[in-house]
Every structure is written in C-alpha cells, then in structure tokens.
Design a protein around this nucleic acid. Structure first.
Lengths: 145, 145
DNA sequence: TAGTATATGAGAACGATTATCAGTTGCAAG
DNA sequence: CTTGCAACTGATAATCGTTCTCATATACTA
C-alpha cells in the first residue's frame, strides 16, 4: 500500500517505537484514533477509517483495536448496548458519567473517591486491581421547580 | 403440567400477587431463584432448574429471567465474560467486589461512597439514576511480606 | 530487489440472546 | 368439571457483535 505521510500521528509513532509493523491500514486507524477524543465503537471507527481510506475491512479494525489494546494504546470500555467502545490511554485513569438521554459520555476523576474505593477493598481483604465505575444520570434543571 | 406445591416459593408468591400466569416452569425457576444467593448466569439457572424438572427449555429460562427483570424481581448484572448474571432484588442496593482469581462475587455497601457519588454527579449537573460500580481485586496476604 | 514473517479481505464460524411458530397449558367463565 | 382462549413453551432459526480461516498481499530485513 502506498504510504501517505499526512497520516502520521502520535499513535503511529508509538507503533513504530514498539516495533509493530506499520501497515497502511494501521497508519490510518492510528490517525483516526489520535483525532478522536470520544468513545467510539468499532462500527464508528470503521466509518471514520474508511472515510480516509476505503481499502480497510471491518475485520482489520477489529484486529487493530485488539492489538492496540494489548499494547496498552487503547482501553476497552463497555457502557452497555452490547458493543465495546474504545478510548486512548493517553489521558490517564478516570471514571465516566453517561447522560442517559443523549448517550453522551463524560469523564471525571476524584482523588477522594479513589482513596475511598481502595480503602473499602482493603477492609474486605483485597488489593483492588481494576475499578469499573459508571454513573448514569440525567441533566438537572438549573433552578426553580 | 402437574402442580407440585413443594415448589412454592417467595418469588412464586410475588408472581401470583402481580397476576402473572404461574406455569410449572415459572414455579420451578422461581423456586430455584429463591434458593440462590449468588449471581448465576442463564446457563447455570438452566442447570439448576432442569435438575428439579427436566421439562424446561433454555429458551424458557431466558424468557422468564427477562420477564422477572421487567417485573422488578431480578436485576441483571454484567461482570464481563459475555454472559448476563442475575440476582434477586430483595436485598437492596449494593456494589460488588469480584475476586479475579476465583471469580467469586461479593457484595458490599457504603453510605459515604453513595453520598460521594451523588455529590460528584450533582457537581457535574446531573441527577444520578444508576451507578455501576465493581471492584476487581485479589486477596491480600494476611501479614508479612 | 528478493525473501519471509506478518497483515489483510472476504466470508464462515461462534456464542449469547431473541424471535418464530406450531402445539400446549393455566385459569376463568359457565 | 368441561370448555375456550390468551398466554406460554419447546425446538430451532435468526440476529448481532466479534473472532477465526485461509488464500493473497505487503512491510521490512538483508
């Protein structure tokens, strides 16, 4: 496949560093991911990638997303609805708040919360390795009743 | 189907109260659920139900579990692994801690945590409707190093 | 520039769940 | 205690997201 330097991206750079073979498809998918700051599912990534280069199959998107997750470049999330969603790992650990009306996913972090969760785990005799925390809610009216 | 009174159970009573048709299969599944205090998936419920009465198909277990969820008798959980798991709603709201080595699911509750989560949601302008919180961890060594 | 290990595309396969449909059953009314 | 019918059930096909298969193509090394 022809190389298109305009598709270079931070994630493509990471792939090169890690010694992964940088195919045209991977370059495109890396580019799409680097430009995404939301939580797309595979279908959506496929849409965005084929908009850049139609010579990409959905199977390759599935494979690449799995590869990137194994390499620590992506994190897989499950917000219900039966499809996995992905986010880049470059912006640290955080939790999610999902607007149940619009489906919008927001991120948040809270040190007190993290400490509390670790403490609860410890009290139960466990070392907490992973936390899955999602708040599902609806926007509050600003004022009045 | 022949009625077997030994299969009456608290959940069967709820079904009757709600005016649901109490078939033999439902009676058996209700009985199995009333005796379960863990978080079985459909496959496991099917195993337990057919042990009591082999004239139950997996399709009926899926249907019944969905019906019971709609009726507020069961709560569906997803602890990963691709299969839904179920718990009765009769012991209130709580969170889960999963032992990643054994797969054991433990329940816990914490008022401070609930308050903190509600506060975080409110600060972001949201009324939190549902919280999904799971801690995945491994048992700590008791003492020493 | 060739050689080789690895990646890709297209579609089959898979696993959990839901839908379909012909035959059965709970239960209410007579 | 029968009858009638809406609701339920079993068997199996269909669905949906995801992974696998395999023949072909390609990145990267020498």
């Amino acid at each position: 496949m022809k190389t298109d330097d305009s598709l270079d991206s931070p994630i493509a750079a990471i792939c090169r560093e890690k010694g992964m073979k940088l195919t045209g498809q991977r370059r495109t998918i890396a580019h799409v991911l680097s430009e995404s700051d939301d939580h797309p599912d595979v279908e959506e990534l496929y849409r965005r990638a084929t908009a850049v280069d139609p010579r990409i199959s959905i199977a390759t998107v599935y494979r690449t997303v799995r590869l990137f997750e194994e390499q620590g470049i992506l994190r897989r999330r499950d917000f219900g609805g039966g499809r996995a969603r992905y986010e880049t790992t470059d912006h640290g650990d955080h939790f999610h708040l999902i607007d149940v009306d619009s489906g919008t996913v927001m991120e948040f972090d809270d040190e007190e919360l993290k400490a509390l969760l670790a403490g609860i785990g410890a009290r139960m005799g466990y070392e907490v390795a992973t936390t899955r925390l999602e708040l599902y809610g609806r926007r509050k009216k600003k004022k009045g009743r």
